[in-house]
Design a protein around this nucleic acid. Structure first.
Lengths: 207, 207
DNA sequence: GGCGTCATACCGTCCGGTCGGTCTTAAATT
DNA sequence: AATTTAAGACCGACCGGACGGTATGACGCC
């Protein structure tokens, strides 16, 4: 059987220069997971969309789950690093909390597909990876909580609402962004971030 | 022939009075969907847990999707009726919004399994049913939004934050309850409702 | 000529859904 | 009152096909 090797490994394809196969797989997988759900997306769907075959995918990723885990790891790593930078910065606790809140909304909206997958398919991960993701997320929450606590200690924020609850409260808002935000809507990611930040700080402020 | 008829229509069963098969199926299905996800729960799992066979399930429900739809329909219907009652009640807009917010948190926590399924598996419904659920949910949001608008018109709430955003903001919090709340934790559903209500009203109040 | 990068063909499993049939109970008929 | 009929409730074996994963090998590049 002659295999005419469609277009071989060369990537001067007619279309836009496509990123390497590994990244491409993760990207299209994220997109498909977000659109149709993890379980409704078959490995075949993914490789078709990426223009390769299963052999390629199982060469780079150990399993379909691996692909999912990468989504989580990637976005969590980025947001944690952002938060670290902001928390270590200057300004009052309120100022830094404002920055952190606006930033997490912004970056989440910039990676909407990841967020949709994130909050919807965590339970599909195998137990061990799920534990790891939860740990990473918990670490993020703790850093966020520390900022709130700082503001409480400084007397800027009200002390009668546990900071744990506040963190759950606000991060819930962030996690749900993917379920209603439309990029072509009237509000930009930045505007949404500012408004949500206002609502958060308002709720925290001593009256 | 004496009808010993296992337990016939009467349910003086030896065990705890079990609800009729149809309700039992929906109940165990909700539980399993919440624990393991819709797609990871096979019809066989459901009927096993309910103590019947597939024949019984397909006798009462047209498909596995039907079961899922019932979950949504049930909880949305209940919460909408609650909201209608509260909105039509007496008191200022702020008072009624407080009641509505606390109530939706409370009822959501009382039906945690439903909420978990709700925000996680909507995309698994066939298109037409999905559209219908979205419409029902939209109706709920609109009623909630009306309450906010009332408060803005009355000058109680700040007018520089679109009420649409506020509704998305707060209902996000509600929809995510299932992802962190533990019934055996230190906070009761009522307390969580009160705290979240405080945070919401605080964010809305004119400073 | 060995190694990374993929393609192709294939396998075993599982799952939603179907379908013919049985048992019980109530209504209709005799 | 006895018998037949009808209908609902439920059983359980079975099917078709999709899906995740694997095994093997071709092809280019150092």
């Amino acid at each position: 059987m002659v295999l005419r090797s469609k277009e071989s490994a060369g990537r001067p394809a007619g279309k836009t220069a496509r990123p390497p196969v590994k990244e491409r797989l993760l990207h299209v997988a994220t997109r498909l997971f977000a659109r149709h759900g993890f379980e409704s997306t078959s490995v075949q769907d993914i490789v078709d969309a990426a223009g390769v075959t299963k052999g390629a995918m199982y060469h780079y990723y150990g399993s379909k789950d691996d692909l999912l885990y990468e989504v989580y790891h990637q976005v969590l790593t980025m947001q944690t690093s952002h938060l670290d930078q902001i928390a270590a910065g200057q300004g009052t606790a309120e100022e830094r909390l404002r920055l952190a809140a606006a930033d997490v909304v912004q970056t989440s909206l910039d990676n909407l597909d990841d967020m949709i997958v994130f909050f919807r398919s965590l339970h599909m991960l195998p137990e061990d990876k799920q534990t790891q993701v939860r740990a990473e997320r918990r670490a993020y929450q703790e850093k966020f909580k520390a900022l709130v606590d700082e503001g409480v200690a400084a007397g800027t924020f009200r002390s009668d609402i546990s900071s744990d609850i506040v963190v759950h409260y606000f991060l819930s808002v962030v996690n749900q962004l993917g379920s209603w935000f439309k990029p072509d809507g009237s509000l930009s990611p930045g505007q949404v971030g500012d408004l949500f930040t206002e609502l958060l700080i308002g709720g925290l402020a001593v009256r």
